[in-house]
Design a protein around this nucleic acid. Structure first.
Lengths: 121, 121
DNA sequence: TCAAGTATGCACCTTTTGGTAAGTATCCGT
DNA sequence: ACGGATACTTACCAAAAGGTGCATACTTGA
């Protein structure tokens, strides 16, 4: 990898920084569902169709260590844990909204481009 | 992989779609620089410090096939090509701005979290 | 007592992504 | 004639990301 030399800032631009937090195959989806309110692990797993336990846990942990989500263990006798957005996380989700909008408006073109890329390889 | 079954939409949410377009180690940076105006290949390479030719070309091609950037070959005798944002690309960059802002405002916390994750592995 | 549900952890493997280093073809200045 | 610049292309390899499946420890319901 290219040396991170002294004069270059940590990130080229804010987006660059943000992407370090939200990139990961399942993170946007997780954030999307958590935005609807605190969710139990099992419920989240059923919502984010196709995710494996390993991935769900891993991404939740990263989001937690980034201060985006909060894990609450109720210490109850039948295991009970839930996840929710921190205020920081909520601010991130708000900043993500325009991108959501852009994605919705252009879903067709994006999907088409993806197909195109897939077939022309 | 989980079957993409009939009833699920292509993308869970708009953001999900958008991320398919802008994820890639160098894409945000490329977009960031192209937002300043059309840029020649070599210039871009010097701006986006640390990219290899392979990566630059690859990501530019993907962005091009997604309709985000436009390649212009001037067909001149000493090779001359430049890249610029299409109107579609420009709309994407506008939608990215809040995320840039969020990233800038929270650069400190993001960098700190990254360090933390790196060391506690 | 046995299966199923709760929330994880761990080992192993495949796929995807990124990096290095070389080559190509054309041109210009010395 | 040679080195350097232009814009790529290719082959090969390493690292990161993601997936599968089994294990854990406790509970409730049949």
């Amino acid at each position: 990898m290219a040396k991170e030399n002294s004069e270059n800032p940590r990130f080229i631009c804010g987006l660059h920084a943000t992407l370090h937090v939200i990139s990961g195959k399942w993170k946007p989806l997780i954030l999307f569902f958590l935005n609807k309110g605190p969710t139990r692990y099992g419920e989240l797993k059923r919502s984010v169709r196709g995710v494996s336990d390993k991935m769900l846990i891993q991404q939740l942990k990263e989001l937690e260590s980034d201060g985006i989500v909060q894990r609450t263990d109720y210490g109850e006798i039948p295991l009970r844990v839930d996840y929710s957005l921190t205020p920081f996380g909520a601010s991130l989700v708000r900043a993500m909204e325009p991108l959501c909008g852009w994605g919705e408006e252009n879903e067709e073109s994006i999907a088409a481009a993806m197909e195109h890329r897939k077939t022309s390889r």
